[in-house]
């Protein structure tokens, strides 16, 4: 696993204090960094000559409500030539956090960040086109947050059939 050790050294050199913890779980390495350093970290990993993490496999977020810091944004980086995968993670606190966008480093992050904004409400500064992607443009709320309700509708069985039938908005002609 010397390739990943090299990657972590590159990160340490580029970020210094910004690299907070490195965890390993089931053979996968995750590096937690400070949110302010995300663009520098991505650029360092992409441009490092021995590593070439040119591919952003995925970008997503997790909501740990009611734990603080509430959000974690996860970047899945992949080096095609060396066959290495590394995960970057940073935690954001608050209800409408913002972080720098990595679109200039990885162009494929465009839609991923739009989806994270749509689902979690995390703002990406420097993103050319931050609009809702999956929900309608006038939707209120961010669905994948833990305090957003699932929208569960009561299931209609025989014992409550008439009650639900009365309340359901059937379409007339």
């Amino acid at each position: 696993m010397s390739g990943l050790d090299e990657a972590l050294n590159v990160l340490r050199a580029a970020l210094g204090e910004g690299l907070r913890t490195v965890t390993e779980f089931r053979g996968e390495t995750t590096a937690e960094i400070a949110p302010a350093n995300i663009v520098a970290a991505c650029r360092a990993l992409r441009d490092a000559p021995g590593l070439r993490f040119t591919r952003l496999a995925g970008l997503t977020a997790v909501d740990y409500w009611p734990e603080e810091p509430r959000f974690a944004v996860i970047y899945l980086l992949h080096s095609l030539e060396k066959g290495l995968s590394l995960r970057l993670l940073h935690r954001l606190a608050g209800d409408a956090p913002s972080v720098a966008s990595v679109v200039e480093v990885f162009p494929s992050a465009n839609w991923h960040e739009r989806e994270v904004y749509d689902m979690f409400g995390i703002l990406f500064t420097g993103h050319p086109d931050l609009r809702r992607l999956l929900m309608p443009a006038d939707w209120q709320g961010h669905p994948l947050r833990k305090d957003y309700p699932l929208g569960y509708e009561e299931v209609q069985f025989t014992f409550n059939f008439d009650e639900i039938d009365r309340k359901k908005p059937y379409a007339k002609e």
Partner: peptide, 15 residues
């Protein structure tokens, strides 16, 4: 799919 995104039965929209 009993959730926020799916219309629970298309008879809410058309007969």
């Amino acid at each position: 799919f009993n959730n926020y995104a799916i219309v629970q039965g298309v008879d809410e929209v058309v007969p």
